[in-house]
Amino acid sequence: MSVVAERLTPARRSAALTHRDVVPLVFGLTVPAVVAELMILRLFTRTAIHIPALEFLAGTYRVAAVLGRFTFHLAAVLLIAALSVLVVELARRVDPQARTAAAATAVFGVTAAAARLELIDTVTTTVLVGTCVAVLVWTAASGRGISSVPLLLFGAAFLAVAAHSLAQQVAAEGGPTVDGARLLYLGEGLALAAAASAPLIIGVRPSRRAVWFGAAAGVLVAGAMIGNGATVKILTLWNFGLAGYFPSPLYGIAVAGVVIAIVTAYRLGRRFDAWALVLLFVGAVGLHSTYQSGLVVAGLSLFVYLTCTRRRSADADETSAAALEA
């Protein structure tokens, strides 16, 4: 234990923050902000306008609307910080994977900025974002064995939806019209498969409690979809890019998969895995805004960062690493 501590915390001498602390620090703030933004802005205020019989909640709604916008701004600011930190941290590494991820994340950042400044149009943005995500998925998945399956599925889903988006945009610019509906079905199916298989990323048999949590969340979502399909499907479409083409229980299974994976990761103390999963699935496959794509990019880069870091400490001291895990 002490050996590892000595090796990994040169900070002890100076008592100052080191670059090693920066990633968990920034992500530890970003992820809660992102979750809060999802809950307040994207879920609550968007549902609220569709709940007619609740006029007495108008005051609450107004507060939530302002708060929601604030959490969005906060999450966006922190996301920019998180992406910047990751680029720097990944670029410092010698592994080719890390370098590639750094490059892709940086290109995404430049793309988002250029899009914001209206230097590039939507088609270019979509192509660049899609490419960055593809490169990151490939990088994050390489050398992972079976735990790469959910990532590859997610990447394929993202690209399918992006391809549909691109086809629409090309058509809107006067290009040929493509029947893209199949791409959407494909994307949605792949996204559900990615979510359902998310526990593979953790690679550990989930605890009973994690399964209970996941089952409860899955039943809740499937139940809500069966009970109030219209509103729930609007929410899944507008927030996650899922139109609800498939039977409701499949969405329950998908949610269960993600929740099981996140809970398992947390219970093992693997915060980074949990954070990356949250970012990936809160960002989801719908190409809504550079903010949401940014969440996906951050999640994927974090997976790469994690793999590289683990490989390094494993190389350095396999015994102590194994001891820590146990």
């Binding site: 990994l8 050398g143 064995g145 690679g203 103390g269 980074f272």
Partner: peptide, 26 residues
Amino acid sequence: MGRTGGDTMTSHSDVDVSSVAGTRNL
């Protein structure tokens, strides 16, 4: 879901990755 081998076999808690720190550092 079993152990998957490869890198993840040797992966360990993030606690040491992020920081293992004394009180001052915390």
